[in-house]
Amino acid sequence: APEGPKLGRPASPEEIAAQDINVFPDGTGLPPGKGTAHEGKALYDAKCASCHGPKGIGGSAEELAGGGSLTGPHPDKNIGTYWPYATTLFDFVRRSMPLDAPRSLTDDQVYAVTAYLLYINGIIDERTEMNAASLPRVEMPNRRGFIPIWPGEKAR
């Protein structure tokens, strides 16, 4: 690469921590906090159901539950059938939802509503606490459903 003028300002650990909201499948990036589906239900009904429908079905935005199959004439891709990692739910909801007020939930609330989404997809039960340790251990039904194309594609 050509030489640059090296104007980058060193970023402090605090500055990075305040911005870094990436959550990896192994749990890296998960904040302290916790929540259960039981706690998450009220929150979901108040802040999410208007778009995603009660229990994640029948809203104007994407369905968040409902089961179904990934094969056949009408495959059903949703959290329960398709998403490979539970950590993605936390990552996505914390950064993007609710759509009308992103970044408005506390970390506890994100854990709780994540637990609720896992619960309505039949993956965890209502009382299981989701936190930085337990969430990465949730085994999603479609965990092995992806065929890596990259780096194979690179070789072409």
Partner: peptide, 10 residues
């Protein structure tokens, strides 16, 4: 401000 205002509202 972190996050900046345009990340908190549609």
């Amino acid at each position: 401000e972190e996050p900046p205002p345009w990340m908190k509202t549609p």
